[in-house]
């Protein structure tokens, strides 16, 4: 307590005088620093936080868009319905399977491809260019192509390639909808993982590798005990950023399966879309949206910590 008293006269403006030019100048200086930030900050708050608060409000109401005037406050009953909804739980499970499957498989492919690309060889930049291209193709376009030219039971290339093995007219998108979607997603996201891991490999200190070679470590040993630990941060970053994007997958499901057959391949974004825009059930859709946000916060918190750690190490 006594220290407080002792310090305050020294730091605060001397008593007995009105706010001085110095404090006014300091305030001006603070605002000068903040001013460039404010437009972006205000825009982001208006465009994202307000709609989300409205979502929370809607989630407490029962409201069907096709029945005007049906809006009434129902408290948490939408949430009770959501958790009792079997399809919602299935869609949540599908979301986990699709996101997890896509991120893990494309990370494994990504590491393999990055290791292959991290050598000097003839046509390296051409191969790298070919490998990143799937990520640049419009997702709607790639979903259409996978559904038709690749997975079509009669004229698709996949069945053609598998015909020596007795596969003739297997209907991939209706008999194996989740697998088909994950395939198209892995194709799109492997380049993302490859690029991140490749950046990790190339940031690796050559001296450590040379030291390893001098000590007589074989390539496998070197990869496991030197390269993988170094890559860990890059792999974590790829997995978390990838997960944040893939959780929101909508295009591939809309195009390839429409969530079907039935609701077999619907993930949460697609199911919420169906409830909101085909069922016009605003309250339920909003409650599901809030639940998804809460789920995402867990992953997002991890991702943010990692991003900050990465930045701290870079600087």
């Amino acid at each position: 307590m006594s220290t407080d008293v002792a310090i305050s006269p020294a730091t605060a403006a001397p008593p007995g005088r009105p706010p001085t030019d110095a404090t006014a100048a300091a305030r001006r200086e603070r605002w000068k620093r903040r001013a460039p930030l404010l437009p972006a900050l205000i825009f982001a708050i208006i465009a994202t936080q307000i709609p989300f608060l409205v979502t929370v409000w809607y989630s407490l109401n029962s409201w069907n868009l096709v029945r005007p005037g049906s809006e009434r406050f129902v408290g948490l009953s939408n949430y009770a319905d959501v958790f009792a909804d079997r399809v919602f739980r299935e869609a949540a499970l599908n979301t986990i399977v699709i996101t997890g499957g896509c991120v893990v498989v494309s990370m494994i492919f990504g590491i393999a491809l990055a290791v292959l690309l991290d050598r000097q060889f003839f046509g390296r930049s051409v191969v790298r260019t070919m490998i990143i291209t799937p990520f640049l193709i419009m997702p709607v376009a790639s979903a259409l192509l996978w559904k038709t030219t690749m997975f079509d039971p009669l004229f698709g290339l996949v069945n053609f390639a598998l015909s020596p093995f007795g596969v003739e007219t297997f209907d991939w998108t209706s008999s194996a909808p989740v697998f088909s979607i994950v395939t198209a997603l892995v194709w799109q996201w492997t380049p993302f993982m490859t690029l991140l891991v490749l950046a990790g490999l190339q940031s690796q200190g050559k001296d450590v590798l040379e030291a390893g070679q001098v000590d007589g470590a074989g390539p496998v040993r070197m990869f496991r005990s030197i390269t993988l630990p170094h890559l860990r941060r890059y792999i974590e970053l790829g997995v978390l950023l990838g997960a944040i994007y893939v959780v929101n997958t909508f295009d591939q499901i809309y195009i390839m399966t429409q969530g079907g057959p039935g609701t077999a391949s619907a993930n949460l974004p697609f199911y919420i879309y169906q409830r909101a825009f085909l069922g016009f059930d605003v309250g339920q859709a909003a409650a599901m949206g809030v639940v998804v946000v809460i789920g995402t916060i867990v992953v997002a918190t991890l991702a943010l910590r990692l991003l900050f750690r990465t930045f701290a190490e870079e600087n």
Binding site: A40, A44, T48, Q49, I50, P51, F52, V54, T55, Y58, I244, V247, N248, F250, L268, P269, I272, Y273, A276, V282, A285, A286, M288, G289, V290, V292, V293, T296, I297, V299, A300, A303, L304, L307
Partner: peptide, 15 residues
């Protein structure tokens, strides 16, 4: 800023 990017778009599409 980055947390707004992590907000799933389905959560805001209805409003």
């Amino acid at each position: 800023f980055i947390s707004t990017k992590m907000l799933p778009v389905v959560a805001v599409i209805v409003p």
